[in-house]
């Protein structure tokens, strides 16, 4: 591929707050920065959990309503089992452990890696208003709270893409 066709910038939107969706966005943003691309990561709706101080260390993976969920060993995961108190926490802890084994960092460290490489983190104003969040409730290195118009404005430029993770 010629240099002219190379992707130069990605703006990634994360609207969900469960562990796997947040990580999809984090991995893609970090990967972009590592490739020397410009990366902007925009959190909205439940995705805001990933950059909310009180919640960012406690993201969960859903054990109910998740048909791809499997028991260790590969058997289907019974939905009713997922409703038992503590099961979701256990499954989430196991997911985090498995990610740690692969050298995938916890959310806060991952965000630090992205900003260390020059990536930027943003929050959605409308969702902040809905959830009654203030800028000070967010992770300290969130660059700004944006309207959708401002997001589009900064997502432009040659060879740039918007990705909905």
């Amino acid at each position: 591929m010629s240099d002219n066709n190379k992707l130069k910038k990605v703006s990634i939107i994360c609207s969900k707050g469960n562990l796997e969706d947040v990580y999809a966005a984090l991995v893609m943003a970090n990967g972009a920065v590592m490739e020397g691309m410009e990366a902007k990561l925009f959190f909205t709706f439940f995705g805001l959990d990933a950059i909310t101080k009180k919640r960012m260390k406690k993201l969960h993976t859903a054990t109910v309503g998740n048909p791809a969920m499997r028991m260790p060993g590969g058997l289907p995961f019974p939905t009713l089992l997922g409703t038992i108190p503590g099961v979701e926490a256990g499954v989430s802890a196991m997911m985090r452990k498995q990610m740690d084994d692969l050298d995938i960092p916890p959310v806060v460290e991952f965000l630090e890696m992205i900003t260390a490489g020059g990536g930027e983190i943003f929050a959605c104003k409308l969702a902040m208003d809905m959830f009654k969040l203030k800028k000070e409730d967010l992770w300290d290195d969130v660059s700004a709270v944006l309207t959708v118009g401002e997001f589009y404005e900064m997502s432009g430029g040659e060879n740039s893409q918007i990705i909905f993770a």
Partner: peptide
């Protein structure tokens, strides 16, 4: 890059400065 960041040689920000763009 995480393992390099934990090596004690350089932090991740420093690593980006040493090898810009990759």
């Amino acid at each position: 890059i995480r393992s390099v960041g934990k090596s004690g040689i350089v932090d991740i920000k420093g690593l980006y400065q040493l090898f810009p763009g990759g």
